[in-house]
Nucleic acid binder design. Sequence first.
DNA 1: TTGTAAGCGTTATCAT
DNA 2: ATGATAACGCTTACAA
Lengths: 346, 346
Amino acid sequence: MSDRKSTPPPGRPTMKDVATRAGVGLSTVSRVVSGKGGVTRDKVRAVERAIRDLGYSRNEFAHTLRTGSARTIGVVVTRISDPFYSVFVGAIEKRAQERDLLVLVASAGDDARENERVLRRMLGRRLDGLIVISHEEADLSFLQTERDAGTPIVFADRPPHGLKADLVVVDNRRGAADAVEHLAAAGHTRIACIAHVAGQFTSEERQRGFAEGMRAASLPTPPELTVVVEDEVDVCVEALREMFSLPEPPTALFTTNSRTTKAVLKASRLLGLQPALVGFDDFELADLLSPAITTIAQDPWAIGEAAADLLFERIAGLIGPERRIVLGTRIIERGSGEIAPRSSGL
Amino acid sequence: MSDRKSTPPPGRPTMKDVATRAGVGLSTVSRVVSGKGGVTRDKVRAVERAIRDLGYSRNEFAHTLRTGSARTIGVVVTRISDPFYSVFVGAIEKRAQERDLLVLVASAGDDARENERVLRRMLGRRLDGLIVISHEEADLSFLQTERDAGTPIVFADRPPHGLKADLVVVDNRRGAADAVEHLAAAGHTRIACIAHVAGQFTSEERQRGFAEGMRAASLPTPPELTVVVEDEVDVCVEALREMFSLPEPPTALFTTNSRTTKAVLKASRLLGLQPALVGFDDFELADLLSPAITTIAQDPWAIGEAAADLLFERIAGLIGPERRIVLGTRIIERGSGEIAPRSSGL
DNA sequence: TTGTAAGCGTTATCAT
DNA sequence: ATGATAACGCTTACAA
């Protein structure tokens, strides 16, 4: 096919190839490529020509191996396909782009071991920094070494286990308490908490906030009115059926995250119930449902921005004790919290 | 604190450090780390111990520089925060993880130049492959060089400009025609098409499919019943107001993507209209609205999987002409398409 | 089974 | 201003 004689070396052209072609030394090419001065115009032009002719582009791996920085940050989330995380990542990418940093995203899934594998894999890349939404059960103490080695790590949404570190969270307790306050103000006294599977930091904080809100409103929190569910509809149907068969059923519900809110809404629909409802986490179309759903909104974009900004400060050399940034939540009143508290059994 | 006899070298530990500490040779460490066999249990244990003690993790750059493959693929989308794209990326990540590949994700935004910048940046990384949802207006012919150099590139959702390449799309025409057929079967004769901003491949294909469907049903497509909008609510309010002021207003609407569907729904609500409606793209909670919205569903997860699988085949060495994989769509009937065609003006 | 040594493509140091 | 040359940390023949 192709005769050996004039065939360019196989694979991608390297600086050496460029140097040969341009008839200059290797280091001259390096200087041109890195944009350092101290090269005559003639040679610069010759090198640039050779680069174009050969379609050369710098090997970032050799470059990074030599220089030590990859101009890349890593982001690890549990599921990139979840809107919350994808918006969060979007904000980080935006910020990173402004600084000409690349973002390496990986979702770690629900498995703690997989989580560690992904993180270790990331670490091998000598990232300039790392933003992590950590797995709940994973012990992240192995990251300590990395931090000691100088890679800043910022956690978001929930604190890591086994490690003290920078953290960006929202005020889950306060948000949940706001929800209760809103329902209580509408006259509700039997308010139930439908929480997402236990063990999760956010869920527990929100349950705690719920309890605090109830106490602040001088309302009782009987154990049968707090239930922990998974976000499958049938599970919620069962939970609601049981709850609304009580002698004194609830008249209002508080749900601890949007997946649960949606599942509970579908379950309510199936059971023909329409309790008052306030859900933690805003979600798209909450305003188009009837009734429109009142939510406690957190802002994943803002969380991402805050995490990115904090990380960049650390990368820039900010030292000092770990920081904890707490972002507020905001209640979006749409009506579902103001349904009159009439006793509603099955 | 801990006075080590042999000073731990500054910076990150390398294989050499591990080798020294474990009292073995460098290549033995390499073998253990790469999981190759042929090392005695004793030494394996010693090495693993040293790795833990030192908190060692392999330098991927050196590794890649040596082996030539980064075991990394790149994915470029327009906005990672859009649910469609994030699910798409999620599927690719899943598939990649099964093959122990890392995924570098970047969103290119709406700007054509930024799009090129991001792509070029990616290319410098010697990726094993690239999956791209290309910008509509960007000329991607510069990618040709890279493909010639052996980096497989698969496009998804829409074809690239200035380049022939592997492509995964859905059958937009057929899907749109299905929507029309459904509405026609419910007795509608005045069906309008609300299309998302022009110039977009998918939007145009769906408009074409709409027209084909209308023709197949022997229905007229007067120009005043096809309108191109942006997905802001107020724009849609204006468009609908005008359309429903016609002497013969439509009784049913077809929208070309979910963002438009949602905007049109909100606009309809504001105007007190309730036309029959079928929207391209399924969306969460479409079933909880009243009436529940009938949609033409495409499956971003499946698109991601198909793109990933095709890319992996190419990486594995599959040669041959560019492929075009067309995935079907599926109508999800929920009622909004069957609203009786009564004349509904403002 | 294990260690030694030669690169991978780049940048940095040092002569020239 | 320019060019040889030695690392960077790793893999992989090849030797032992």
